[in-house]
Protein backbone atom coordinates (compact mmCIF):
# COMPACT_ATOMS: atom_id res chain seq x y z
CA UNK A 1 0.00 0.00 0.00
CA UNK A 2 1.37 3.33 -1.06
CA UNK A 3 1.87 6.09 1.47
CA UNK A 4 -1.07 8.39 2.07
CA UNK A 5 -0.87 11.86 0.59
CA UNK A 6 -2.11 15.11 2.12
CA UNK A 7 -4.62 16.82 -0.17
CA UNK A 8 -5.76 20.41 0.28
CA UNK A 9 -9.00 21.40 -1.38
CA UNK A 10 -11.96 23.68 -0.91
CA UNK A 11 -14.88 21.44 -0.08
CA UNK A 12 -18.36 23.00 -0.03
CA UNK A 13 -16.83 26.44 0.62
CA UNK A 14 -14.58 25.24 3.44
CA UNK A 15 -10.82 24.88 3.04
CA UNK A 16 -10.16 21.26 3.91
CA UNK A 17 -7.18 18.97 4.29
CA UNK A 18 -7.51 15.21 4.07
CA UNK A 19 -5.39 12.11 3.65
CA UNK A 20 -5.79 9.85 0.65
CA UNK A 21 -4.04 6.84 -0.79
CA UNK A 22 -3.00 7.66 -4.37
CA UNK A 23 -5.28 4.90 -5.73
CA UNK A 24 -8.47 6.09 -3.96
CA UNK A 25 -11.23 7.73 -5.96
CA UNK A 26 -12.64 11.06 -4.88
CA UNK A 27 -15.93 9.23 -4.31
CA UNK A 28 -14.33 6.78 -1.91
CA UNK A 29 -12.64 9.54 0.10
CA UNK A 30 -15.78 11.71 0.20
CA UNK A 31 -17.85 8.86 1.57
CA UNK A 32 -15.39 6.93 3.71
CA UNK A 33 -12.85 9.46 4.95
CA UNK A 34 -14.90 12.66 4.99
CA UNK A 35 -18.24 10.99 5.88
CA UNK A 36 -20.04 12.92 3.13
CA UNK A 37 -22.33 10.06 2.19
CA UNK A 38 -24.78 12.19 0.19
CA UNK A 39 -22.74 11.41 -2.92
CA UNK A 40 -23.77 7.91 -3.98
CA UNK A 41 -21.89 5.04 -5.56
CA UNK A 42 -23.90 3.47 -8.37
CA UNK A 43 -21.91 1.71 -11.08
CA UNK A 44 -18.43 2.92 -10.10
CA UNK A 45 -17.45 3.04 -13.79
CA UNK A 46 -18.80 6.32 -15.11
CA UNK A 47 -22.10 5.21 -16.60
CA UNK A 48 -24.74 6.17 -14.02
CA UNK A 49 -23.86 9.65 -12.71
CA UNK A 50 -24.99 8.89 -9.11
CA UNK A 51 -21.59 10.12 -7.85
CA UNK A 52 -21.72 13.46 -9.71
CA UNK A 53 -19.94 16.34 -7.94
CA UNK A 54 -18.71 19.70 -9.16
CA UNK A 55 -15.02 20.40 -9.56
CA UNK A 56 -14.20 24.06 -10.23
CA UNK A 57 -17.81 24.57 -11.35
CA UNK A 58 -17.93 21.67 -13.84
CA UNK A 59 -19.63 18.35 -13.19
CA UNK A 60 -17.59 15.14 -13.01
CA UNK A 61 -18.15 11.55 -11.95
CA UNK A 62 -16.30 11.38 -8.62
CA UNK A 63 -15.74 7.64 -9.17
CA UNK A 64 -13.57 8.48 -12.20
CA UNK A 65 -11.35 11.01 -10.46
CA UNK A 66 -8.60 10.23 -7.99
CA UNK A 67 -8.89 12.08 -4.67
CA UNK A 68 -5.29 13.29 -5.08
CA UNK A 69 -6.37 15.10 -8.25
CA UNK A 70 -8.58 17.32 -6.06
CA UNK A 71 -5.48 19.18 -4.83
CA UNK A 72 -6.17 22.92 -5.07
CA UNK A 73 -9.64 22.42 -6.54
CA UNK A 74 -13.03 23.66 -5.45
CA UNK A 75 -15.33 20.69 -4.86
CA UNK A 76 -19.10 20.96 -4.40
CA UNK A 77 -21.11 17.93 -3.31
CA UNK A 78 -24.84 17.56 -2.65
CA UNK A 79 -24.14 18.61 0.96
CA UNK A 80 -23.05 22.03 -0.33
CA UNK A 81 -26.12 22.75 -2.46
CA UNK A 82 -28.65 23.98 0.14
CA UNK A 83 -28.22 27.54 1.43
CA UNK A 84 -28.05 27.55 5.25
CA UNK A 85 -31.41 26.18 6.43
CA UNK A 86 -33.12 26.68 3.10
CA UNK A 87 -33.31 24.04 0.39
CA UNK A 88 -31.95 24.98 -3.02
CA UNK A 89 -34.79 25.61 -5.52
CA UNK A 90 -33.78 22.38 -7.29
CA UNK A 91 -34.15 20.37 -4.08
CA UNK A 92 -37.50 22.03 -3.39
CA UNK A 93 -38.82 21.35 -6.89
CA UNK A 94 -37.64 17.70 -6.77
CA UNK A 95 -39.81 17.31 -3.64
CA UNK A 96 -42.79 19.15 -5.09
CA UNK A 97 -42.71 17.29 -8.40
CA UNK A 98 -42.07 13.92 -6.68
CA UNK A 99 -39.00 13.60 -8.88
CA UNK A 100 -37.56 10.77 -6.81
CA UNK A 101 -38.62 7.36 -5.65
CA UNK A 102 -35.78 5.30 -4.20
CA UNK A 103 -33.58 8.40 -4.11
CA UNK A 104 -30.20 6.88 -4.92
CA UNK A 105 -29.78 8.83 -8.16
CA UNK A 106 -31.18 12.08 -6.75
CA UNK A 107 -28.00 13.73 -5.36
CA UNK A 108 -26.28 13.13 -8.71
CA UNK A 109 -29.21 14.56 -10.67
CA UNK A 110 -29.41 17.65 -8.46
CA UNK A 111 -25.68 18.40 -8.65
CA UNK A 112 -25.68 17.78 -12.42
CA UNK A 113 -28.76 19.98 -12.89
CA UNK A 114 -27.14 22.74 -10.82
CA UNK A 115 -24.12 22.52 -13.11
CA UNK A 116 -26.46 23.27 -16.02
CA UNK A 117 -28.54 26.02 -14.40
CA UNK A 118 -25.43 27.85 -13.13
CA UNK A 119 -24.31 28.04 -16.74
CA UNK A 120 -27.55 28.14 -18.73
CA UNK A 121 -30.39 29.36 -16.48
CA UNK A 122 -32.88 29.25 -19.37
CA UNK A 123 -32.05 25.80 -20.78
CA UNK A 124 -35.04 24.30 -22.62
CA UNK A 125 -36.40 20.79 -22.13
CA UNK A 126 -34.29 19.32 -24.92
CA UNK A 127 -31.13 20.81 -23.45
CA UNK A 128 -32.00 19.60 -19.94
CA UNK A 129 -32.58 16.07 -21.22
CA UNK A 130 -29.33 16.13 -23.17
CA UNK A 131 -27.35 17.52 -20.22
CA UNK A 132 -28.72 14.87 -17.85
CA UNK A 133 -28.02 11.95 -20.22
CA UNK A 134 -25.10 10.97 -18.01
CA UNK A 135 -27.42 10.38 -15.04
CA UNK A 136 -29.50 7.21 -14.87
CA UNK A 137 -32.71 6.74 -12.89
CA UNK A 138 -34.44 3.36 -12.75
CA UNK A 139 -37.58 4.51 -10.89
CA UNK A 140 -39.12 7.71 -12.19
CA UNK A 141 -38.99 7.38 -15.96
CA UNK A 142 -37.25 10.80 -16.04
CA UNK A 143 -40.31 12.95 -16.84
CA UNK A 144 -40.76 14.13 -13.26
CA UNK A 145 -37.06 14.91 -12.98
CA UNK A 146 -37.13 17.02 -16.14
CA UNK A 147 -40.28 18.81 -14.91
CA UNK A 148 -38.59 19.52 -11.56
CA UNK A 149 -35.52 21.02 -13.24
CA UNK A 150 -37.64 23.21 -15.53
CA UNK A 151 -39.69 24.33 -12.51
CA UNK A 152 -36.54 25.22 -10.56
CA UNK A 153 -35.42 27.40 -13.47
CA UNK A 154 -38.48 29.58 -12.92
CA UNK A 155 -37.71 29.91 -9.18
CA UNK A 156 -34.08 30.93 -9.66
Amino acid sequence: MAKKVIVQANLNDNDTEFLSEPRQSLLEVLRETLALTGTKEGCNDGNCGACTVMVDGRIVNSCLMLAVEAEGKKITTIEGIAQADKLHPLQQSFLEEAALQCGICTPGFIVAAKGLLDREPKADEHRVRHWLAGNLCRCTGYDKIIRAVLKAEKEL
Binding site: G46, G49, T52, V55, R58, I59, V60, N61, L64, M65, A112, G115, L116, W131, A133, G134, N135
Partner: peptide, 9 residues
Amino acid sequence: IGGIQIQTR
Protein backbone atom coordinates in the same frame (compact mmCIF):
# COMPACT_ATOMS: atom_id res chain seq x y z
CA ILE B 1 -17.98 11.28 -26.27
CA GLY B 2 -19.70 10.25 -23.02
CA GLY B 3 -22.02 12.58 -21.13
CA ILE B 4 -21.27 16.04 -19.75
CA GLN B 5 -19.53 14.59 -16.67
CA ILE B 6 -17.17 12.58 -18.89
CA GLN B 7 -16.52 15.54 -21.20
CA THR B 8 -15.20 17.59 -18.25
CA ARG B 9 -12.32 15.13 -17.94
